Computed example of a mutant assay.
Amino acid sequence: MIAYLRLAALVAWLLLALLLHGLWRLVRARSPWPRRFLGVSAWLFGARVRVLGTPLRRDAVLLANHLSWLDILLLAGASGCAFVAKAELRAAPLVGWLSTLNRTVFVRRGDRIGVADQVGALRTALARGQPVAIFPEGTTSDGATLLPFKAALLAALDPPPPGLMVQPVRIDYEPAARALAWVGDEPGTAHARRVLTRRGTFVATLHFLEAFAPTGDRKAIAAEARRRILAAGSEADAFPVERAPCP
């Protein structure tokens, strides 16, 4: 029953947000409704957002850990960012079209030949000023482990556009992380059903860490962002700081 109630509320909210978005576009004003739609949608799924730090609102790349598709709703609602997503999402019914409203940058994962085009698309998106979020782990984790960061797309920051900053973001759903994380080979529909049918609410903490200027090569940028997210996690007893093995 709770899943049907949430879906009904989501459809009603979508129709209202599309109407308001159309009115804003009619007068050629910049529409806040894609961001607001995503943020309220996270609330409908039970998320109660706690924001630590100050999200950069423009000229920024946000590098965040990744647990679930809920991350997209939460990050966009809190910061107004666009996202880098796999190209297959663009063809998904409704979801692909909605993604274009928030200026999603679509890339083909694993396409080494097309990396230059992907980097060019990201640089074009950054030129608009809207912050762009990347999940550099490349997949979702269980919320207790921070996976290695993939740095290919960060070639767009070498050299960095003038004035652009990198802001690491730590996403934490504890103690509900294991119940909400999308890991392993679980089909997307099964994960969505699991989130929809989960009763009650949960606290989603978005920790916007101190931003830094992207100096050095792409691997250095990725390593610095990952180091800061790990350090923030160790303060909250999550993502324990990795130590070198004993000799």
Rank of each mutant, 00 (worst) to 15 (best):
F37C: 04
L38G: 12
S41C: 13
W43T: 12
W43H: 12
L44P: 02
F45K: 05
A47S: 08
R48N: 04
R48T: 08
R48F: 06
V49K: 04
V49H: 06
R50T: 13
R50E: 14
R50M: 12
V51I: 15
T54C: 14
T54Q: 15
L56H: 13
R57H: 11
D59N: 15
D59K: 12
A60H: 08
L62P: 09
L63E: 01
L63R: 00
A64G: 00
A64K: 01
N65V: 11
H66N: 08
L67I: 13
W69A: 13
W69C: 12
L70P: 05
L70D: 14
I72E: 09
L73F: 15
L73I: 11
L74E: 03
L74D: 04
L75M: 08
G77H: 06
G77W: 03
A78C: 05
S79F: 00
S79Y: 01
C81Q: 06
C81L: 03
C81H: 03
C81I: 09
F83R: 09
F83Q: 08
F83V: 06
V84H: 05
V84D: 01
V84Y: 05
K86Q: 09
A87V: 12
E88W: 06
R90W: 11
A92M: 14
P93L: 01
P93F: 04
V95Q: 04
G96C: 08
W97C: 13
W97S: 14
L98M: 12
L98T: 02
L98D: 00
S99R: 00
S99I: 09
T100Y: 00
T100A: 14
N102H: 14
N102D: 12
R103P: 08
T104V: 15
T104D: 01
F106S: 11
V107N: 13
R108M: 13
R109Y: 12
G110T: 10
G110I: 10
G110H: 11
D111C: 09
I113F: 10
G114F: 09
G114V: 07
V115G: 02
D117W: 11
D117F: 10
Q118T: 12
Q118A: 15
V119T: 10
G120W: 12
A121E: 15
T124S: 14
A125L: 09
L126K: 05
A127T: 06
R128G: 14
P131N: 00
I134S: 04
F135T: 06
E137W: 04
E137F: 06
T139A: 08
T139H: 09
T140M: 10
S141A: 13
D142E: 08
G143C: 06
G143P: 06
A144V: 00
T145Y: 05
L146P: 01
L147R: 08
L147Y: 06
F149I: 02
K150E: 11
K150V: 03
A151F: 05
A151G: 05
L154K: 03
A155Q: 15
A155W: 08
A155V: 00
A156G: 02
L157K: 04
P159W: 07
P160C: 02
P160H: 01
P161T: 09
P161I: 06
P162A: 11
P162W: 03
G163P: 02
M165S: 08
M165F: 11
Q167P: 01
P168I: 05
P168H: 00
R170S: 13
Y173M: 02
Y173A: 01
Y173C: 04
E174I: 00
P175L: 00
